[in-house]
Protein backbone atom coordinates (compact mmCIF):
# COMPACT_ATOMS: atom_id res chain seq x y z
CA UNK A 1 0.00 0.00 0.00
CA UNK A 2 1.39 3.36 -1.06
CA UNK A 3 0.58 6.49 0.94
CA UNK A 4 1.74 10.06 0.53
CA UNK A 5 2.53 10.89 4.16
CA UNK A 6 2.98 14.64 3.83
CA UNK A 7 0.36 16.91 2.23
CA UNK A 8 -1.25 20.26 2.97
CA UNK A 9 -4.69 21.55 2.13
CA UNK A 10 -6.22 25.01 2.28
CA UNK A 11 -6.36 24.50 6.05
CA UNK A 12 -2.64 25.35 6.11
CA UNK A 13 -1.68 29.01 5.77
CA UNK A 14 0.41 28.30 2.66
CA UNK A 15 -1.73 25.44 1.33
CA UNK A 16 -3.73 26.07 -1.82
CA UNK A 17 -5.26 22.65 -2.46
CA UNK A 18 -8.79 21.51 -1.75
CA UNK A 19 -8.94 17.92 -0.54
CA UNK A 20 -11.58 16.99 -3.10
CA UNK A 21 -9.30 18.24 -5.88
CA UNK A 22 -6.46 16.06 -4.54
CA UNK A 23 -8.78 13.08 -4.87
CA UNK A 24 -9.89 14.05 -8.39
CA UNK A 25 -6.27 14.56 -9.40
CA UNK A 26 -5.08 11.21 -8.07
CA UNK A 27 -7.82 9.36 -9.90
CA UNK A 28 -7.80 11.34 -13.15
CA UNK A 29 -4.01 11.01 -13.44
CA UNK A 30 -4.00 7.38 -12.30
CA UNK A 31 -1.39 8.11 -9.65
CA UNK A 32 -0.17 4.89 -8.02
CA UNK A 33 -0.89 6.06 -4.46
CA UNK A 34 -3.70 4.61 -2.37
CA UNK A 35 -4.19 7.66 -0.22
CA UNK A 36 -2.59 10.57 1.57
CA UNK A 37 -2.14 12.09 5.01
CA UNK A 38 -3.00 15.73 5.60
CA UNK A 39 -0.29 17.24 7.78
CA UNK A 40 -1.47 20.80 8.31
CA UNK A 41 1.03 23.33 9.62
CA UNK A 42 1.01 24.09 13.36
CA UNK A 43 -2.43 22.59 14.00
CA UNK A 44 -4.48 19.46 14.01
CA UNK A 45 -7.63 19.74 11.91
CA UNK A 46 -10.01 17.89 14.19
CA UNK A 47 -13.25 19.08 12.65
CA UNK A 48 -12.91 18.19 8.96
CA UNK A 49 -14.46 14.86 7.99
CA UNK A 50 -13.16 13.46 4.72
CA UNK A 51 -14.78 10.04 5.06
CA UNK A 52 -17.30 10.70 2.26
CA UNK A 53 -14.52 11.75 -0.11
CA UNK A 54 -12.46 8.74 0.90
CA UNK A 55 -15.37 6.45 0.07
CA UNK A 56 -16.29 8.24 -3.17
CA UNK A 57 -12.75 8.07 -4.54
CA UNK A 58 -11.74 4.83 -2.80
CA UNK A 59 -8.78 6.53 -1.15
CA UNK A 60 -7.35 6.42 2.35
CA UNK A 61 -7.41 9.98 3.75
CA UNK A 62 -5.86 10.46 7.16
CA UNK A 63 -5.03 13.48 9.30
CA UNK A 64 -1.85 14.38 11.17
CA UNK A 65 0.15 17.55 11.87
CA UNK A 66 3.39 19.33 11.05
CA UNK A 67 4.77 21.16 14.07
CA UNK A 68 7.83 23.38 14.46
CA UNK A 69 10.72 22.76 16.83
CA UNK A 70 14.22 24.05 17.46
CA UNK A 71 15.35 21.23 15.14
CA UNK A 72 13.01 22.25 12.36
CA UNK A 73 9.70 20.84 11.21
CA UNK A 74 8.33 17.56 12.51
CA UNK A 75 5.41 15.45 11.33
CA UNK A 76 3.24 14.04 14.11
CA UNK A 77 1.11 10.98 13.36
CA UNK A 78 -1.48 9.78 15.85
CA UNK A 79 -2.71 13.09 17.22
CA UNK A 80 -5.33 12.77 19.95
CA UNK A 81 -6.99 15.34 22.23
CA UNK A 82 -4.71 14.17 25.04
CA UNK A 83 -1.63 14.75 22.90
CA UNK A 84 -2.91 18.18 21.90
CA UNK A 85 -3.14 19.08 25.58
CA UNK A 86 0.56 18.30 26.05
CA UNK A 87 1.98 21.15 23.96
CA UNK A 88 0.96 24.13 21.86
CA UNK A 89 0.74 22.92 18.27
CA UNK A 90 0.73 26.56 17.12
CA UNK A 91 4.14 27.33 18.60
CA UNK A 92 7.07 27.86 16.23
CA UNK A 93 9.70 26.91 18.82
CA UNK A 94 8.65 23.68 20.47
CA UNK A 95 11.37 21.64 22.18
CA UNK A 96 11.76 18.49 20.06
CA UNK A 97 12.42 16.42 23.17
CA UNK A 98 9.06 17.48 24.57
CA UNK A 99 7.27 16.63 21.32
CA UNK A 100 8.89 13.19 21.18
CA UNK A 101 8.17 12.47 24.85
CA UNK A 102 4.53 13.50 24.45
CA UNK A 103 4.16 11.38 21.33
CA UNK A 104 5.64 8.39 23.09
CA UNK A 105 3.31 8.89 26.04
CA UNK A 106 0.20 9.07 23.87
CA UNK A 107 0.83 6.43 21.25
CA UNK A 108 1.85 8.85 18.52
CA UNK A 109 5.07 9.13 16.55
CA UNK A 110 7.19 12.16 15.63
CA UNK A 111 9.04 12.22 12.31
CA UNK A 112 11.32 15.14 11.38
CA UNK A 113 10.54 16.16 7.80
CA UNK A 114 12.79 17.53 5.05
CA UNK A 115 15.71 17.10 7.49
CA UNK A 116 18.29 18.04 4.87
CA UNK A 117 16.82 21.48 4.32
CA UNK A 118 18.52 24.62 5.63
CA UNK A 119 16.87 26.24 8.66
CA UNK A 120 13.73 24.05 8.81
CA UNK A 121 15.44 20.65 8.60
CA UNK A 122 16.82 18.66 11.54
CA UNK A 123 20.30 18.06 10.13
CA UNK A 124 20.82 21.81 9.76
CA UNK A 125 20.83 21.96 13.55
CA UNK A 126 22.60 18.82 14.72
CA UNK A 127 26.09 20.37 14.57
CA UNK A 128 25.03 23.15 16.92
CA UNK A 129 22.50 21.29 19.09
CA UNK A 130 23.69 17.70 18.90
CA UNK A 131 21.83 14.66 17.64
CA UNK A 132 18.44 14.59 19.38
CA UNK A 133 17.46 11.55 21.40
CA UNK A 134 14.42 9.53 20.48
CA UNK A 135 14.27 10.08 16.72
CA UNK A 136 13.79 6.81 14.86
CA UNK A 137 12.34 7.88 11.52
CA UNK A 138 12.96 10.88 9.27
CA UNK A 139 11.54 11.89 5.92
CA UNK A 140 14.19 11.05 3.34
CA UNK A 141 12.18 11.83 0.21
CA UNK A 142 10.35 15.16 0.15
CA UNK A 143 8.62 16.32 -3.01
CA UNK A 144 9.67 19.92 -2.46
CA UNK A 145 13.36 19.23 -1.96
CA UNK A 146 15.93 21.35 -3.75
CA UNK A 147 19.62 20.95 -4.38
CA UNK A 148 21.02 18.03 -2.35
CA UNK A 149 18.44 18.12 0.43
CA UNK A 150 17.19 14.56 -0.03
CA UNK A 151 20.73 13.24 -0.42
CA UNK A 152 21.76 14.93 2.82
CA UNK A 153 18.75 13.36 4.52
CA UNK A 154 19.53 9.89 3.15
CA UNK A 155 23.21 10.02 4.13
CA UNK A 156 22.58 11.29 7.65
CA UNK A 157 19.71 8.87 8.19
CA UNK A 158 21.95 6.01 7.12
CA UNK A 159 24.75 7.11 9.46
CA UNK A 160 22.38 7.44 12.41
CA UNK A 161 20.37 4.30 11.73
CA UNK A 162 17.09 6.07 11.08
CA UNK A 163 14.41 4.59 8.89
CA UNK A 164 13.00 6.76 6.12
CA UNK A 165 9.59 7.78 4.85
CA UNK A 166 8.53 9.75 1.78
CA UNK A 167 5.96 12.47 1.28
CA UNK A 168 5.21 15.00 -1.40
CA UNK A 169 4.86 18.02 0.93
CA UNK A 170 2.29 19.14 -1.59
CA UNK A 171 0.67 22.53 -1.18
CA UNK A 172 -1.03 22.59 -4.56
CA UNK A 173 -3.12 19.86 -6.15
CA UNK A 174 -0.76 18.81 -8.90
CA UNK A 175 2.14 18.17 -6.51
CA UNK A 176 0.46 15.35 -4.57
CA UNK A 177 2.03 11.91 -4.91
CA UNK A 178 5.52 13.05 -5.91
CA UNK A 179 6.95 11.03 -3.04
CA UNK A 180 5.28 8.41 -0.87
CA UNK A 181 5.80 5.50 1.50
CA UNK A 182 5.12 1.86 0.71
CA UNK A 183 3.71 -0.32 3.49
CA UNK A 184 3.42 -4.06 3.64
CA UNK A 185 0.34 -3.73 5.83
CA UNK A 186 -3.01 -2.37 4.79
CA UNK A 187 -3.56 1.04 6.35
CA UNK A 188 -7.14 2.03 7.06
CA UNK A 189 -6.78 4.33 10.05
CA UNK A 190 -4.27 6.56 11.75
CA UNK A 191 -3.79 3.82 14.35
CA UNK A 192 -2.85 1.40 11.56
CA UNK A 193 -0.39 3.97 10.23
CA UNK A 194 1.27 4.59 13.60
CA UNK A 195 1.56 0.86 14.19
CA UNK A 196 3.11 0.30 10.76
CA UNK A 197 5.60 3.12 11.36
CA UNK A 198 6.54 1.78 14.78
CA UNK A 199 6.98 -1.78 13.54
CA UNK A 200 9.10 -0.77 10.59
CA UNK A 201 7.38 -2.45 7.66
CA UNK A 202 7.73 0.39 5.14
CA UNK A 203 10.01 2.02 2.59
CA UNK A 204 10.25 5.51 1.13
CA UNK A 205 9.51 5.91 -2.57
CA UNK A 206 10.43 8.82 -4.82
CA UNK A 207 7.90 8.86 -7.64
CA UNK A 208 9.65 11.83 -9.29
CA UNK A 209 12.76 9.80 -9.96
CA UNK A 210 11.50 6.24 -9.59
CA UNK A 211 13.84 5.55 -6.64
Amino acid sequence: MLLDLHTHSIKSDDGRAKVENYCQWIRSKNLPIDGFVLTEHRQFDAESDYSALAEKFDLCILKASEVETEYGHVLVYGVTPALQAEFDFGSISLPLAKVIAACNAHGAIAVPCHPGRPRVGMFAHTDALGVPAGVEIVEIYNGGSRDQEDQIAIEHASQLGYRGIGGSDSHIVSHVGRCATRFDAEIKSIDDLVLALKTGQFEAVNLKTGD
Binding site: G144, S145, R146, I172, V173, S174, H175, K208
Partner: peptide, 11 residues
Protein backbone atom coordinates in the same frame (compact mmCIF):
# COMPACT_ATOMS: atom_id res chain seq x y z
CA UNK B 1 -1.93 25.23 -10.37
CA UNK B 2 1.14 27.21 -11.36
CA UNK B 3 4.77 26.21 -10.88
CA UNK B 4 7.94 28.07 -11.73
CA UNK B 5 10.83 25.59 -11.86
CA UNK B 6 14.49 25.91 -12.72
CA UNK B 7 16.46 23.61 -15.04
CA UNK B 8 17.01 21.12 -12.22
CA UNK B 9 13.26 20.82 -11.90
CA UNK B 10 13.23 22.50 -8.49
CA UNK B 11 10.10 24.45 -7.68
Amino acid sequence: DLTVANEKGET
